[in-house]
């Protein structure tokens, strides 16, 4: 494992429970995740796999019934879990920021873009015109033509793709160390999706921030990210460099997921592959591997014993990990 100082974010053994009427629901279990400086890390997984819980624990805005039962979340060398609320507040929007799925509900419809972009710079001791200039520069960077005058416009006067670019501009305005992007291209069509991806790549290299990119769309992850993390029912089942994980997936779940992607099915079919079964009940976890009930390769030991994390490639610089019994040999 690389040294903690090379990572913007370093999560170790993180487990989060939600208190519900049916008992405690174990939404995240023993998650280890590193985001190296200047890298784009993608997270894939079905809904309910803990992606949102992961985000909320990174920005430390958790639901009232959530409880962190174990682990550490180191951000730029400091543990977010033990940090004071004031310190946390000074990090959010400055050192880490977030872009959400739907730009129309992120931007305030009754304020101009300029007003909103200046407002979020409230911590800076600059004149208003300087702040405005900075906002205009940022809009130009995300490819909005004629930025100075467009600052006076309202969100509805922009197209969907532009709105999403504006929310990215707002998130990156403070030059954060970490940008969290929660399915930012789901609401856009293919050409705009590609525009956003190319723009994120460009901005990432010019600002030098790291990006945690969450998406259902495997193609987007393949194109944008350096590393990919595959989550299933609150656990990380496989992680490694995108090219390696997508080219030779080791975990049966990753294999199934890639098979299900309609883009990867060359022949036209009216019967698309699916993953049989459902996600197990997270308040009553199975004893063995979490994926056993849906796994097509399970053995007797999978039902009883929890698999450990293994490195697939020994000695390589870029590590590829999988949590499966089949790989432990």
């Amino acid at each position: 494992m690389s040294k903690a100082t090379d990572n913007v974010l370093s999560i170790r053994n993180l487990s989060i429970d939600y208190a519900t009427q049916e008992g405690s629901l174990k939404a995240l279990r023993n998650v280890d995740l590193d985001i190296p400086k200047g890298q784009i890390v993608g997270v894939v997984g079905e809904s309910g796999c803990g992606k949102s819980t992961l985000i909320s624990s990174i920005i430390q805005l958790m639901a009232n019934n959530a409880k962190t039962t174990s682990g550490t979340v180191f951000f730029e060398g400091e543990d977010l879990l033990t940090m004071s609320p004031t310190k946390l507040k000074s990090l959010r929007g400055q050192r880490m920021s977030i872009v959400f799925q739907d730009p129309m509900s992120t931007l305030n419809p009754v304020l101009t873009i300029g007003k909103q972009m200046v407002d979020i710079q409230y911590r800076d001791k600059r004149s208003k015109s300087q702040k405005r200039q900075r906002s205009a520069d940022m809009l130009a960077q995300v490819g909005i033509p004629d930025p100075a005058s467009r600052l006076n416009q309202y969100p509805h006067e922009f197209s969907g793709g532009m709105q999403q670019r504006i929310s990215i501009a707002m998130a990156l305005q403070a030059q954060p160390a970490l940008l969290i992007a929660d399915e930012p291209t789901t609401a856009l069509d293919a050409t705009l999706e590609v525009q956003i991806i190319d723009m994120l790549k460009e901005l990432q290299s010019s600002i030098g921030c790291s990006i945690l990119f969450i998406s259902h769309h495997l193609g987007v992850i393949a194109e944008l990210c350096n590393q990919v993390v595959v989550m299933y029912a609150g656990e990380i089942v496989e992680q490694g460099p995108v090219s390696r994980v997508f080219k030779s997936p080791k975990h049966p779940y990753t294999q199934k997921l890639l098979e299900c992607d309609p883009a990867s099915i060359a022949k036209k079919t009216r019967n698309l592959p699916t993953i049989e079964g459902e996600i197990p009940n997270l308040s009553d976890l199975p004893a063995g591997c979490i994926f056993t009930s849906r796994c097509h390769k399970k053995t007797a030991q999978c039902e009883e014993l929890k698999p450990k994390r293994h490195a697939v490639t020994q000695g390589a610089t870029e590590k590829h990990f999988v949590t499966c019994h089949l790989e432990s040999l």
Partner: peptide, 15 residues
């Protein structure tokens, strides 16, 4: 907004 697997299920159902 559906995962690839669930998406496949819905499309198979419609077909």
């Amino acid at each position: 907004g559906l995962d690839v697997s669930v998406q496949g299920e819905i499309l198979n159902l419609l077909n």
